[in-house]
Amino acid sequence: MNDVLLDIRDLRVTYTTEEGLVVAVDDLNLQLRRGETLGLVGETGAGKTTTALSIMQLVPSPPGRIETGEIFFDGEDLRRKRLEDIRNVRGNRISMIFQDPMTSLNPVLTVGFQIEEAIMLHQRLSQRQAGRKARDMLKLVGIPEGRAGDYPHEFSGGMRQRVGIAMALSCNPELLIADEPTTALDVTIQAQVLELMRRLRSEFGTSMLLITHDLGVVAEACDSVAIMYAGAAVETADTERLFTNPRHPYTRGLFGSIPSLDEDVPRLSPIKGIMPDPTELPTGCRFHPRCPAATGICAERTPVMVAVEEGHEVDCMIYEGLVPEARIGEKED
């Protein structure tokens, strides 16, 4: 058995739009170990959802296209599998929880049936057994089994997300991809859903790719983190190390944007500028136009991932010794 469950190598995904070719994911490398929860963090548009859809082989095509790269799941490249084999993986060995529970359940089918359907498809169970199992899954996520015959519109957002979780876990997948599962929920419900996911994950022994833009969620739920910017991972480390010692200027910028209870800072220091236009990514390091440490070389040369310590990699030329670190963290007035 391989220790690495999911291994994404040099993934590049593009969308053809009227404005031009959008590179949503560019040379992304990611690894997820068995049993671990990996947080994939980035702003809107960083390519997180596209990464998730690439793993599921669900990038809408056209206009999307996985151009290059390999996605190894349990040692097999998902990109080389035939469609029927991919279907056998979807919902069975890899399943997904979507961002918006209000729109990701089918409004004209009962929630019980929507769970049952996946079970019937992947497990050799009779309809009655599958129905039984679907109701058990509902109970497991805290929904009375008597509500299996109700339709999505009869549930609140938080409950619908629980249904989504029940659906995703119903076939006991090896990998669970959760695409911002709490973003659309109220803060109080967020905590409940996160807690539920954490409990079920450890119960089922599922590995998880947790996509979020919320570093608080990462601190709560993840073993390790990959920070994504403009389509690529810029820093990967285990959660503790990343939180105590962020290295990439972008990661530091993210932490600088969070208010802290312990420190008394007059103002937060947000990252300057906005995410680059995905049809015209900057040359060299993609972050250089917004980077406080950028020098001339940053616009010309593309940085290489460097391990600053065991299990902590950063995609910045400071750590290649090409740019002085001194200016990082200094306030620019």
């Binding site: 669900l58 056998n88 993986v89 979807r90 399943s95 979507f98 990701s104 089918n106 498809l121 659906m167």
Partner: peptide, 10 residues
């Protein structure tokens, strides 16, 4: 979105 969900079920 729910069509994507259906596809994601396999």
């Amino acid at each position: 979105d729910y069509i994507r969900t259906a596809r994601a079920k396999g």
